[in-house]
């Protein structure tokens, strides 16, 4: 009896309907491109395109479950990549110290955002919008408004080496590993559970001994660190840290999380969903390019996709508890 209940729940889960949607989209583009879509090279392209956004999706997904959002992730990533490039190229530090410096940069910006939100009670939207500008400006200043060339074997290997006959990129494996580890943290650990509890009802969480303020700091700093890694991955791939870096990927992270069923109301969704959302987003983008859709119309289509996800989210959350 308990089993059939669990089974019914599985079918009702958002992830289940998402997989159906993903399969339909894949079949749709498969037919429309006469199978070109399924070629190994194209699948590699899709996975490769996911790498940068994966890091952002993990961080944003966790923040949205907690009930906040970080609009500065993109520019934090850009700024951090420039910090790494300077560390390695200007100061001649080892590549891994460079990445460490970038991560520190991300931790600092995350800490500032969390302070603005928890101590000064700024809306997360406003606080991180300001941080976005600050980081964008700093990236310009330190990057001398152009790009810093990176010549480093290790970084180039991380960014471009491909295993198995030039098919599976290192970067993809790293990104998927992160997704897996964070997925386990979110679903299976005390820390992960506390994110859901805070997002579901902060007062109730507080009254059972959880410290939502501390959680806020951890999650924003985590977001900053992940954004920094996204920045470093991109810089490693293109062998330079540019002043626009991952800026344009800012909203892809949020979009993938929302597509994956992480509700803006907080307290629901999960990493499996976010991963499917990420796949969906990239399959969609890739498919549109393959069929030769005008790039401007691609942007419109992406927007419509997000709207559809939000509408589904609205009907799913309506009636099941309150939206905050």
């Amino acid at each position: 009896m308990d089993k059939s209940h669990a089974l019914r729940r599985t079918f009702k889960r958002k992830e289940f309907s998402l997989i159906i949607v993903l399969i339909l989209v894949v079949i749709f583009f498969g037919i429309l491109t006469h199978g070109k879509f399924f070629k190994p090279l194209n699948i590699r392209n899709i996975l490769n395109a996911m790498v940068i956004v994966t890091f952002l999706t993990i961080g944003e997904g966790m923040l949205i479950i907690y009930g906040n959002i970080d609009l500065s992730a993109g520019t934090v990533g850009t700024l951090s990549a420039i910090v790494m490039a300077h560390s390695v190229m200007t100061f001649g530090l080892p590549w891994w110290v460079g990445i460490l410096m970038a991560v520190c940069m991300g931790l600092i910006t995350g800490c500032i955002s969390a302070t603005l939100i928890t101590r000064l009670h700024f809306q997360p939207f406003i606080a991180t919008l300001a941080m976005k500008s600050v980081c964008e400006g700093l990236a310009d200043v330190f990057g001398n408004a152009s790009a810093i060339k990176i010549e480093n074997k290790a970084l180039s290997w991380i960014g471009n080496f491909k295993f198995a006959n030039n098919v599976i990129p290192v970067a993809v494996i790293i990104a998927l590993l992160f997704m897996l580890i964070y997925g386990i943290i979110l679903a299976k650990t005390k820390f992960g559970r506390m994110i859901y509890l805070c997002g579901g009802n902060r007062q109730a969480a507080f009254l059972t001994g959880i410290n939502p303020v501390k959680m806020c700091y951890v999650l924003f700093m985590n977001m900053g660190a992940l954004a920094a890694l996204a920045g470093c991955m991109l810089a490693a791939r293109v062998s330079s840290a540019t002043v626009t870096g991952v800026n344009s990927n800012q909203f892809s992270g949020v979009t993938a999380a929302i597509l994956g069923g992480i509700s803006f109301g907080g307290g629901s969704g999960g990493m499996i969903g976010a991963f499917i959302g990420l796949l969906l987003l990239n399959v969609f983008n890739n498919g549109m390019t393959l069929i030769g859709l005008d790039p401007y119309w691609q942007t419109v289509a992406s927007g419509v996709l997000l709207l559809v996800a939000l509408i589904i989210d609205y009907y799913n959350t309506r009636g099941t508890g309150k939206r905050s």
Binding site: R193, Y196, L197, G200, N201, Q203, L207, T208, I210, G321
Partner: peptide, 16 residues
């Protein structure tokens, strides 16, 4: 408002 996490299961409300 302050006691339960309404979206969560009985299980995870009890273990908080």
């Amino acid at each position: 408002e302050q006691g339960l996490i309404l979206k969560q299961t009985i299980r995870s409300n009890i273990s908080m």
